[in-house]
């Protein structure tokens, strides 16, 4: 089967090969112009800006938005139950700290692994399409919530009464851990934005049948994307739990984590690195400015924004630049 003439002649690699999806040079450039500054700002900001809680929440949402970006923006699956991975990570990491007395890096890793295991368990859901997938994932998150808050599990999870990590609380270190999770998240996104694996995921999003005929192993690729996005939420959940140090099942399985993250991605622009970044900074900033004190105004503005977005800017803010021929990483 190898002595058949190829459909296209063999050719030396052309300069275009280097242009591909961006490749390594673009990845390095994005690392220097996006990852490094973002991480530096969040690392230094607490010394200048007193509202550490806002900074921490913003990082948490940046990670969640990018996690949604991986599985939805790139791969085309919208998981309403995404918060299930966050809550699972929060509980697994906390229990690893409290009950197993693991060192914090191992405990955070346990959170990520637990979320990835849940993703593995839910893998068959990826066979569902569209709304069915969205709703089934929501049901799965609800099931996880019911499980950890079950009074029968009080000896382990403390059921509905939540957990307190005050004995192991460390504000600055847990803040630093979230900076690290943010760095990892941005590195993953830079990889997807500049690699052919990222292109393959977008091919699956646009047309799974075509992607398969183009040689993409659809089942394997979307499974990897699903695991990656679960891992990101699990890590974020663990570090979040440690940092807030007192939380309830309702806190870490709150559906608004998913809703916010989805809106941030849609607002900024899916399948880019910068879109979800700007979406989160702008909209969480807005929420912090008016949402917490006067939620009714916020909900009004927010609702309006979603309608306007879906109607006029389905590709998010970055599409305004793209229409002017500006490429947004």
């Amino acid at each position: 089967m190898s002595d058949i003439p190829p459909a296209t002649p063999e050719a030396a690699p052309s300069p275009a090969a280097a242009r591909r999806a961006g490749g390594a040079p673009a990845a390095v450039r994005h690392g220097l112009t996006i990852l490094l500054p973002a991480v530096a700002v969040f690392a230094v900001a607490p010394r200048i800006y007193p509202n550490g809680a806002l900074l921490f929440a913003m990082m948490t949402f940046l990670v969640l938005a990018q996690g949604i970006n991986v599985i939805f923006g790139f791969t085309g699956y919208l998981p309403f139950g995404y918060v299930g991975f966050f809550g699972t990570g929060a509980y697994a990491a906390s229990l690893a700290l409290l009950r197993l007395h693991l060192a914090w890096p191992l405990a955070m890793l346990a959170g990520a692994v637990a979320a990835a295991l849940l993703a593995l368990l839910l893998m068959p859901l990826l066979r569902l399409s569209g709304a069915y997938f969205a709703i089934a994932s929501l049901a799965a998150a609800e099931a996880m919530y019911q499980l950890v808050s079950n009074p029968a599990l009080v000896p382990i999870t403390n059921g509905p009464y939540g957990l307190s990590l005050q004995a192991v609380y460390d504000g600055p270190v847990s803040y630093g851990a979230m900076v690290g999770v943010l760095a990892l998240t941005l590195a993953i996104l830079i990889y997807l934005r500049t690699s052919r694996f990222g292109l393959a995921l977008q091919a699956i999003r646009d047309d799974p049948a075509s992607a398969a005929t183009a040689g993409v192993d659809v089942v394997r690729s979307r499974a990897l994307a699903w695991l990656l996005s679960a891992l990101m939420a699990g890590l974020a959940g663990g570090v979040y739990a440690w940092h807030v140090s007192v939380f309830y099942p309702d806190t870490v399985f709150d559906l608004s984590f998913t809703v916010f993250a989805i809106v941030f991605v849609l607002f900024g622009g899916p399948a880019t690195i910068l879109g979800p970044l700007f979406g989160t900074l702008a909209l969480y900033g807005l929420y912090d400015a008016i949402g917490i004190s006067t939620p009714q105004y916020f909900q009004f503005i927010y609702g309006l924004l979603i309608v306007v977005l879906v109607l006029f800017l389905p590709e998010g803010l970055v599409s305004l630049l793209r229409r002017r021929g500006i490429r947004v990483p």
């Binding site: 393959a200 977008q202 047309d207 075509s210 992607a211 040689g215």
Partner: peptide, 14 residues
């Protein structure tokens, strides 16, 4: 059935 969100080149590249 093109990948509508990708460029022409990226379609072929995949």
């Amino acid at each position: 059935r093109p990948f509508v969100g990708l460029t022409v080149r990226q379609n072929v590249e995949v």
